[in-house]
């Protein structure tokens, strides 16, 4: 094997170790008990420490733990539907902003795009009180619908931002050609531009899912007990003695969907079938 490839694989190996270490650490810790955690770094079950399912049991209604299934489902539903709606609306809005000129007084396309993005400039705390009051007024506090609405407000700007940028990179001639071929403007979008834009949509969807899934602040401020989301449920695990084993198990279980998404997106993009190049 030539020296260069040896070095390449060596570098990949080092980097993999770097990436895998925390996950491995969390994995071993999740099977440990208090004794196993405090007796120094050990990695091999039965040899280094006595494995136990206590950490995992505490996530599924075990003693002193929580039931993670409901918050998990809540998170999946809220993040999933908010992301889906944001992607659909965001893609449509972005296409319009990329292709048509709007003008209301001094407000033009660029201003509208900035208006979307500006929603994410403020620190979340600024939004917390208005959101709380609005949901209270609508009687949607501590409900999944309320959270979905709030998350759409948070995720839509991301979707619009990414998709405007993407559509701006798709030559107008594609739309024009489709219209010459007999499509109405909307058909041109649906039948030609959209199938060409899956990579952009995929990336935008990934960002929406990640941001939605990881939000703690709004999930915490806008819910009480009925509609807990995963991050909030995990925090409630913490007590006077930190249950490292339960926290490790919950960390793994909450990062799992993101890893799956990252792998799927990476696969699809690298397969090239979704490559965005037009010419």
């Amino acid at each position: 094997m030539p020296l260069l490839s040896i070095l390449k694989y060596l570098a990949i190996l080092v980097w993999s170790g770097f990436v895998m270490a925390p996950l491995t650490w969390a994995l071993t810790t999740s099977f440990k008990t208090a004794n196993g955690v405090t007796s120094g770094p050990t990695y091999l079950p039965w040899i280094g420490y006595e494995p136990s399912l206590a950490g995992w049991r505490s996530l599924f209604g075990g003693a002193g733990g929580i039931d993670i299934v409901r918050p998990y489902l809540n998170s999946v539903i809220v993040t999933g539907s908010a992301s889906l709606i944001s992607i659909v609306l965001g893609t449509l809005a972005a296409y319009g902003l990329s292709r048509f000129s709007y003008r209301t007084g001094f407000v033009k396309n660029a201003d509208i795009v900035f208006f979307f993005i500006s929603q994410r400039i403020m620190p979340p705390i600024v939004l917390a009180i208005p959101f709380f009051l609005m949901l209270q007024f609508l009687d949607l506090l501590d409900t999944r619908l309320g959270l979905v609405l709030v998350y759409i407000a948070l995720l839509l700007p991301i979707a619009v931002w990414i998709m405007v940028d993407f559509f701006d990179g798709v030559p107008r001639q594609i739309d024009e050609m489709a219209m010459l071929d007999g499509c109405t403007p909307f058909e041109a979008f649906r039948r030609v531009v959209l199938p060409n834009s899956l990579s952009g949509i995929l990336v935008a969807a990934m960002f929406c899912l990640i941001f939605g899934w990881n939000d703690f602040f709004f999930a915490f401020t806008l819910t009480f007990t009925d509609t807990q989301l995963l991050p909030v449920a995990i925090v409630s695990l913490n007590s006077s003695v930190t249950p490292w084993w339960s926290l490790s198990a919950s960390a793994l279980i909450s990062v799992a969907p993101l890893i799956v998404i990252a792998i799927v997106v990476e696969r699809l993009l690298s397969r090239g079938t979704l490559a965005g190049a037009i010419r």
Binding site: Q173, E176, L180, C183, T184, N196
Partner: peptide, 19 residues
């Protein structure tokens, strides 16, 4: 609108539907 005119046009640079 263009779609109703039934005119074919070829541009200077290739425009193809990648998908």
């Amino acid at each position: 609108p263009t779609a109703k005119r039934n005119i074919a046009q070829v541009f200077q640079f290739p425009v193809i539907y990648q998908s």
